[in-house]
Simulated assay, not measured.
Amino acid sequence: MPASFEDLTKRRIVPVIVIDDANDAVPLAEALLEGGIDIIEITFRTAAAADAITNIAKALPTMLLGAGTVVTEENATRAIDAGVSFGLAPGLNPATIARFQKAGIPFVPGIATPSEVEQGLSLGCKLQKFFPAGDMGGPTFLKALAGPYASFGVKFCPTGGVSLGNMNDYLALPIVAFIGGSWLATKQQIADKDWTTISRQARDALAAAA
């Protein structure tokens, strides 16, 4: 089921997941739910992404399910067909945005400059991914963007270089909707099926954000 802008902005932390085996998708999502996180981004960085999304969508329909690294129209079509609630990308591609809009599913394009913020707004995207956040100036840069753009209702999702140690520097900014973090479930932890650790990391992150 498609997410809404309000659904997404109510969440503060989104796990960014790279998964190699689609059979791990459901137990991974269950581990995050056990830790209190009901939203996930499965990145299209591996061949297992689409099947992983389908498996979660079928088994856990209440999970807000995002497809990340959606950089082509083909990725977009596969993500939509798999049953995602929303999509994200590291960059801003009008064709990809249009594909999601046609399907009635929110899309979060990536931005790194004021010009890209304005292009995203012109295409109807008020939720934008700030990537790579750490390398592009982090919270200081986002504070600067808030000056000219906060009044337009834009919100940002910083991803890239965000960690348990610095996430609250981002979350303290009113212009930040949520942060994306890959540390919540690493590739190695997923491969090792270390669901207990992933649940604990989710709980720790939520406690720190609170």
Rank of each mutant, 00 (worst) to 15 (best):
G180R: 00
A3N: 09
A49C: 12
I105A: 09
T46A: 10
T69I: 10
I42Q: 11
A150H: 08
A133C: 09
A112C: 14
C125F: 02
S122F: 04
F141Q: 14
P106Y: 02
I175Q: 06
L145W: 06
Q189M: 14
A82P: 10
F86Y: 13
S115R: 12
T62W: 01
I111F: 05
R45D: 04
D21V: 04
T54H: 07
A31D: 10
W195G: 13
A177F: 02
K187H: 04
N75A: 12
T43F: 04
A47Q: 14
L173H: 11
R12E: 05
G68Q: 04
E6L: 11
L164I: 13
P106R: 07
R11G: 05
G165M: 06
S4N: 08
F156K: 05
F141L: 13
L64R: 13
N168M: 06
A146L: 02
D204P: 06
I97A: 02
P158Q: 04
K102W: 01
M136S: 15
L65S: 10
A146C: 08
F107D: 04
K58S: 11
N166Y: 06
E34N: 13
I37V: 13
Q188Y: 03
I42G: 10
L127R: 07
G87V: 03
T140K: 14
I37D: 01
E6Q: 15
A205D: 03
G110F: 00
T140P: 01
P90H: 09
P90K: 09
A3F: 03
Y149V: 09
M1T: 14
W183R: 07
P27W: 07
A172P: 05
D204S: 14
D135V: 15
V117I: 15
L121E: 07
Y149T: 10
N93S: 11
I39Q: 02
N75M: 07
K143R: 14
I179W: 02
I40F: 09
V176A: 07
P148I: 00
V14F: 11
A98H: 09
A76N: 11
A31C: 11
A76S: 12
K126R: 15
V70D: 01
I53S: 01
